[in-house]
Design a protein around this nucleic acid. Structure first.
Length: 308
DNA sequence: AATTTATGCAACCGCGCTCAA
DNA sequence: CTTGAGCGCGGTTGCATAAAT
């Protein structure tokens, strides 16, 4: 017996291709609004919320679905999370083709990864079960150092921190004789470095209208590059501002960086931005009060002088 | 090859805000 | 002023898949 449309059983769970098509047709006709009417019109047995979520996160035409966060995107998220806190929707406005859910998931994944790193770093001689976790965890984000006292991570083939698929097999665990966490990880001054970081001064992307005003069909031209940041070559132009003689003034006295330099914000002019965000007291809600998880991200592997 | 475990992502839930009736 | 619908956001969960054992 057929139910009236307002009695329609609400469907949950994964979307089928047919449902996607119906939803796309709806948006094509009516625009991305009145989500609840999709159900009241009897088009889909889904709540308005569910329809909106599906559209925003998966069906909108300008999304970078299935594409890992680039190093630049990672950097933006990390900096803006420090600036805004867990305001994923706000952060997402600074990234082209990324949704709040994408940003949230990225951050969540990153938090877990850093948590594992933290755990691994606190037990230098892990037992057998822990060893696996460490093996999984170690990426360049852990910033192991090369040299006689420090472990080796780099295989020399990774140019972006964003693609770590397969990285599990590239690294060794702590029990190996070559590898130890960097000593700064336990230095209290180092741990509080983050509070001294100048923050980026990004501009949100101007989200272009999603719909052709004539046809109401979504055809957003792909947004322009996402912010007033110089396009950086990984590990190179990134540190342009280091030539600023005032640059080191932002560090606590006596603190030095044996490898690489932390990333600091750019103001869009190529100069290091020393701006602190006074009106944003929000601190990252990362759950590691005494161990800022972002600490790793301000250590970028730099090319050696011979590589520049 | 089979099983276990970890990971990442899609989707749901609850809460709060806005706005119109 | 109140109320309820609609919507957006952040937190959380469950599942599919990959990786390890």
């Amino acid at each position: 017996m057929e139910k009236r449309k307002d009695e329609m059983v609400i469907r949950k769970g994964p979307w089928m291709a047919e449902e996607d098509e119906i939803l796309k047709d709806y948006v094509k006709k009516y625009g991305p609004r009145d989500w609840s009417s999709i159900r009241s019109k009897g088009l889909l047995p889904r709540t308005g919320k569910s329809c909106r979520l599906r559209w925003v996160n998966k069906l909108k035409p300008d999304l970078k679905t299935g594409c890992k966060f680039s190093a630049e995107e990672e950097r933006v998220v990390i900096d803006l999370q420090a600036k805004f806190g867990n305001k994923w929707a706000r952060i997402a406005t600074y990234l082209t083709g990324r949704t709040d859910n994408d940003v949230k998931n990225f951050w969540s994944t990153r938090q877990k990864r850093l948590g594992r790193i933290r755990q691994a770093s606190s037990s230098p001689l892990p037992n057998k079960s822990q060893r696996r976790i460490e093996k999984i965890s170690v990426t360049p984000e852990t910033h192991f150092l090369e040299g006689p006292n420090f472990g080796v991570v780099s295989t020399g083939e990774e140019s972006s921190s964003s693609d770590w698929s397969g990285s599990r097999s590239k690294v060794e665990n702590f029990e190996g004789t070559k590898m130890q966490p960097i000593p700064e990880m336990t230095n209290p001054n180092f741990l509080h470095l983050e509070t001294n970081l100048p923050l980026l001064d990004y501009m949100p992307i101007e989200k272009k209208p999603c719909y052709d005003p004539l046809t109401q069909y979504p055809f957003p031209p792909l947004p322009e590059p996402s912010m007033d940041l110089p396009l950086l070559t990984e590990g190179q132009d990134l540190i342009t501002g280091l030539s600023d003689t005032n640059f080191l003034g932002v560090f606590p006295q006596g603190l030095n960086f044996p490898v690489g330099m932390p990333y600091f914000g750019f103001d869009g002019t190529g100069q290091i931005s020393g701006k602190h965000d006074r009106d944003n007291p929000v601190m990252p809600d990362n759950g590691f009060d005494d161990f800022p998880v972002d600490m790793f991200d301000y250590l970028e592997q730099l090319p050696t002088s011979s590589e520049r």
